[in-house]
């Protein structure tokens, strides 16, 4: 016998033994439950992981949101029913956080809504423009694509730290401004600039991913259509408006919904960059939940759980929208 064969036999022997050993119970299970039972069996490991790490925490969170106090175990926590929800949703005017019982929650909601609006708008536009440029015959096209995608690979904490280093009072940005004879700017300590920085850094960090989605969409548009438009003497803006944009719309919708979902969850890079400040100007919903549940001196895990359930409701609606849009574009 050749050595390679004997080495191979040694390696595969335990596997063959395992296959034979599992064959008996698996055959018995199939006889007992049929094909559906086998499907369930093979799905079980994944479903178990999903259940343990997603479903069970979700249910515990839901139960937590109906309890009070600071105890850890559910059995030790007093029932408060829907009190937390009532507190969070008790508002004189939903557009004025100061009229709400939990004004911090509504400040966070209002900040998040503003952040989502600006971040999604700016990022979608920036990703679209970048994709349009990268789709042209550009020297070093691969390099530029890598440059725009690179920030996506960075950890959000690293992104936050890099930009904090650039934007802080004695940071790189101000160093350049002074060199150019300009007044330094309080990027992270001015309410408006801090918010702009949070939006800008988030756009920088995530844009590459959405640019790739749009670039794939642009490349799927047949060249013939542009040539037909050229033969027809169509002006570039009309080509974009009447051909490119409608044909890119399925990708654009996916980009908008995915970035909405992501923007609602904004936390890490903004928290590292501004810590929610100055004041509460960059405090977003996830930071509110984190601070109420874990960081504040007066911890209130039940209230944080209720806030996270409300946020989950928003995310579920957005996810369903995204599923609907991808099925619709798949059906086309």
């Amino acid at each position: 016998m050749r050595p390679a064969t004997s080495a191979g036999a040694v390696v595969t022997a335990p596997l063959r033994w395992l296959a034979r050993a599992t064959d008996v119970p698996l055959s018995a299970w199939q006889r007992l439950t049929g094909q559906r039972g086998m499907i369930a069996l093979f799905l079980l490991p994944n479903m178990a992981i999903f259940g343990i790490f997603v479903l069970v925490p979700l249910v515990i969170n839901l139960l937590y949101s109906t309890t009070g106090g600071t105890e850890f175990f559910l059995s030790d926590r007093p029932q408060v029913g829907a009190d937390h929800y009532a507190r969070l949703l008790d508002c004189g005017n939903y557009l004025d956080p100061n009229s709400c019982r939990d004004d911090m929650f509504w400040i966070a909601v209002s900040n998040t809504a503003r952040f989502v609006f600006f971040q999604v708008a700016v990022m979608t536009l920036a990703a679209l423009i970048t994709a349009l440029i990268l789709n042209r015959a550009l020297p070093g096209k691969g390099f530029w694509r890598a440059v725009f995608f690179f920030p996506v690979l960075l950890s959000p904490v690293v992104v936050g730290l890099i930009w904090k280093w650039i934007l802080q009072r004695q940071g790189l940005a101000n160093l350049f401004m002074v060199e150019l004879g300009l007044e330094p700017v309080n990027w992270l300590t001015d309410r408006l600039w801090a918010f702009v920085a949070a939006v800008g850094v988030s756009v920088w960090a995530h844009m590459g991913f959405y640019t790739l989605i749009l670039l794939a969409g642009l490349q799927a548009i047949p060249r013939d259509l542009y040539e037909a438009a050229e033969m027809d003497g169509t002006r570039p803006f009309r080509v974009f408006w009447r051909i490119t944009l409608p044909l890119l719309m399925p990708n654009l919708l996916v980009v908008i919904v995915l970035s909405l979902i992501r923007a609602v969850q904004i936390f890490d890079e903004a928290y590292v960059l501004t810590g929610g400040g100055p004041g509460t100007s960059t405090m977003f919903m996830t930071q509110y939940i984190y601070e109420v549940g874990f960081a504040n001196l007066l911890r209130n895990p039940g209230l944080a759980a209720a806030a996270s359930i409300l946020m989950a409701c928003v995310l579920i609606v957005l996810t369903l929208l995204q599923l609907y849009l991808s099925r619709r574009s798949g059906a086309k």
Partner: peptide, 20 residues
Amino acid sequence: VSAADRGLAMVFQSYALYPH
């Protein structure tokens, strides 16, 4: 002279009809 100004019309192999 640009394609549009030559006064010609082209029928493409793929037809190149705007699908939307």
